[in-house]
Write a protein that binds this DNA or RNA. Structure first.
Lengths: 324, 324
DNA sequence: GCCCAAAATGAACAAATGTTCACTCTCGAA
DNA sequence: TTCGAGAGTGAACATTTGTTCATTTTGGGC
């Protein structure tokens, strides 16, 4: 329903008064002898008819629209896309870490429970954390450690360093991530401290996780002492494309049923999904399938990645399996 | 204070979410893990920094900006500018009448007291009134009549016709506008009905008035039976440039002190100024000085005129005497 | 490490805006 | 004329947004 000229003129004058002169609808109503409700409706009409145009200017050199598409497509709370200056693994990881740290800091206020796994990307994230003094925050280790206990890269190290940077309390899991048998795990879970720590991780406000993939660097694939070649092949055969905190998932982000699950010290995927904010950080070559799966399965709701991966993720047709 | 790229990116995403996706600030806050207040502030910043641009598109073929300038310059509630198809007096008056009728109808709701003077322009206005059924409205004659009582153009005629068109009650002044002596006027004002009608006019919600000018067609100048040539010259000598409902004013819209005032049956200019909405209708050649004076003196707060006069009114330097 | 000024924060409040719903008005048909 | 459908209206209510102010946090100097 279009209106004739004199009506448009009124719409224009009211819109000018509202958006330009910043009068309130109440004032405009009094001025023109209309009711406030009517002014509200006329403004609505002015927007409808394009008399008022609101544009949001994309800041140059950012990937805001790519991010918005990712958010929309995969139902994310937020997507963060970085454009690495070089695409070698070390640099991608460093820049992802920086972006993830920014993104994390933005949503922390200093009184939350933060849980985190470990991995190269998260290490870069921790390295990029600014220093704070947040005694009311707790950083909780999400999964048991891997590798030899004296190797500081995995296990409690990142949690400790993150807590230190933020001036927060920390809560460690003094146990390996994969143990030799279900029995061994049950024994460890009988330990009050370990059980409570896992419970705490499960009810964290924010989780910060890396997305493992089937690349040669993969942590999971390297612990040959506990996972045999055969078991790894079984997992692959069951469709495994990646893991979050040792919990393996298939191409749709569904947990893989396998005996190995019973030997892992970490929250289950279903528990992780219940955490309000799960920030997944991953990018670079080889992570694509794992990220896609985590997105499809709704395992994470914030994604920090690089522009190439982002573009690739959007390059596919829509997919009915996508959950969120 | 400018911000760096990643901040702008956040501003952009929030602005998009707010203005484009129409999420509430509350939702956006939850989504990005911020407080609502912060989102409000970031949006403010986004507008400041020009990330959000709001434009109001002027509808073609109207004089909205001319109107807005008039409003701003003379502190009007509203200005209405028409562009007559031809500039002969008859046509200008007809189109002014149409516009004035629209403007009047827009601010009437059907329960007000409307008071009106008379004149050719107001006649055109009344002719353009649509038909309504507003039994709770009252149309009050503002000034006594002029000319021979049997001539229907002046006096009560317009008031009656306006009331009829609107289905409203009417209230007439059964008396001439200018009488022979102060004594005669006092006698008339002793009449309860006349006195009450004038009082009612003075507390009207809306007044509709023509602006008289010193043109040959002027009604005031033609009533030679009551105003002598000499008196008219005296008025001119005192600076008279026009009148509203027989009340003469000078170039700054100030009332002119003269004996004639005491013989007029109409509210004083000061009383008219107190009416919340005084719509002045005038345009075409010769009305300029009178309009300018009425605007300067704040005698009217809504002006309906033609584009040439409007342009001319804006063409002058600012003037410290202007009141509103 | 400690301290301070300045900036940032969010809870509580105040204002502005949007929405609903019962009612009124208008217009056209009978 | 009367009648009724449909549009239009604004009071009351609900929601959203803006502002203030006491407090916290931050960054920088020592």
């Amino acid at each position: 329903m279009s209106t004739h000229a004199s009506d448009k003129n009124l719409l224009y004058k009211i819109a000018k008064a509202y958006y330009q002169d910043e009068l309130t609808q109440h004032d405009i109503a009094r001025r023109f002898g209309l009711s406030r409700v009517k002014v509200s409706r006329l403004l609505e009409q002015a927007r409808q008819e394009g008399i008022v145009k609101i544009t949001v200017v994309p800041p140059p050199g950012t990937f805001a629209d790519l991010e918005r598409q990712l958010e929309a497509r995969f139902g994310l709370l937020e997507a963060v896309v970085v454009s690495p200056s070089r695409y070698d693994r070390a640099n991608v990881v460093r820049e992802l870490g920086q972006a993830a740290a920014d993104c994390l800091m933005r949503c922390l206020k200093g009184r939350e429970i933060l849980t985190m796994s470990w991995g190269t990307t998260l290490r870069a994230t921790v390295d990029a954390l600014p220093s704070r003094n947040w005694p009311h925050m707790t950083v909780v280790q999400m999964a048991g450690g891997l590798g030899r206990p004296e190797a500081e890269v995995y296990g409690s190290d990142l949690t400790r360093r993150a807590a230190q940077a933020l001036g927060a309390r920390s809560r460690m899991i003094p146990a390996p991530g994969i143990v030799a048998s279900k029995l061994a795990r049950d024994a460890l879970l009988a330990d009050t401290h370990i059980a409570e720590t896992l419970a705490m991780a499960a009810r964290a406000d924010v989780a910060l996780v890396g997305l493992g993939a089937l690349t040669p660097e993969s942590v999971v694939l390297q612990v040959s002492s506990l996972l045999t070649e055969e078991q790894i092949n079984e997992l692959k055969a069951l469709g495994m494309v990646g893991d979050i905190a040792l919990r393996c998932y298939d191409a749709y982000g569904r947990p893989i049923r396998h005996e190995v699950n019973e030997r892992i010290i970490a929250p289950e995927l279903e528990q992780i999904k219940r955490i309000p904010r799960v920030i997944g950080v991953a990018g670079g070559t080889g992570k694509y399938e794992s990220i896609r799966a985590a997105l499809r399965g709704g395992l994470i709701n914030v994604l920090v990645t690089d522009d190439r991966t982002a573009t690739r993720l959007l390059g596919e047709p829509d997919d009915p399996h996508t959950e969120r």
